[in-house]
Design a protein around this nucleic acid. Structure first.
Lengths: 126, 126
DNA sequence: GCTTGCCCTGACGCCGGTGTCAAGGCATAC
DNA sequence: GTATGCCTTGACACCGGCGTCAGGGCAAGC
């Protein structure tokens, strides 16, 4: 499978696949003419990468998951290194949730305050 | 008040204040020698900016709040334009919260799955 | 041989708020 | 005069995942 086909099958672009390769995540072989050649296992890897990216992991964080898959595991997240990253990311997400919730509270408060003000002005200018 | 003093009082840097000015948020006058001169109202403005930045607003979003303050209002968020931005940002934050919560769920699930796996391996290799 | 279409590498652009360095002017104290 | 310290403008660096353009090779159909 050439890069274009893999890109389409994985729902991404050749540029993106080359980028992953540059970061050591995908490892195609090469045809005699220099074209990248991918097997089906790589499709699996790319799917794993995309899923984890969507969950907010960085490419570096994703490496252990890919290694885990390559080691023959059914899923990328069952290896100790992956679990460590999962825990770290979970803590991070919890942190963001806390912050965002606090921000939300403040926004809500300000909105309430603004509406209150408007109503007061309405009552004063009937 | 010169830029260094305002920066210190506002807990930020001269570089940052010049950046805000470049984006039309802060408007110092100039001394005869070209030095920026700030009054106390600008300190208030900078505080408003910093608070909103911390809440995830972009500089463009912050403009109506500053305008609202300059218009003589006690708070930057009581004007219609500010309220509109507040609403938009609130919706945005809610979106992020939804996404993050979903991500958190998936992470939790994967962690659970991984731990389960480990326990199974433990039972198989006692 | 020419077109078409995929492939290759290399490199810059983006976004946004800020750090940081360069190169110079001004103010104050010695 | 000179040392110190704040001020000025201008411009590059950062982060990270990718878009996108440049310039060129390879493959296959006509």
């Amino acid at each position: 499978m050439l890069i274009g086909e893999l890109a389409e099958r994985a729902g991404t672009s050749p540029r993106t696949l080359r980028y992953y390769e540059e970061h050591g995540l995908v490892r195609p072989s090469r045809d005699a003419n220099g074209y990248r050649q991918y097997d089906d296992a790589e499709l699996r890897v790319v799917h794993e990468i995309r899923t984890l990216l969507a969950d907010g992991f960085g490419l570096d964080d994703i490496k252990p998951f890919v290694a885990c898959l390559r080691a023959g595991n059914a899923a990328g997240h069952v290896c100790p290194d992956s679990v460590a990253v999962l825990r770290r990311r979970l803590a991070e997400v919890d942190g963001y949730l806390t912050q965002l919730t606090e921000v939300r509270r403040r926004l809500h408060e300000q909105l309430g305050h603004a509406i209150e003000n408007r109503e007061i002005r309405c009552l004063l200018n009937p």
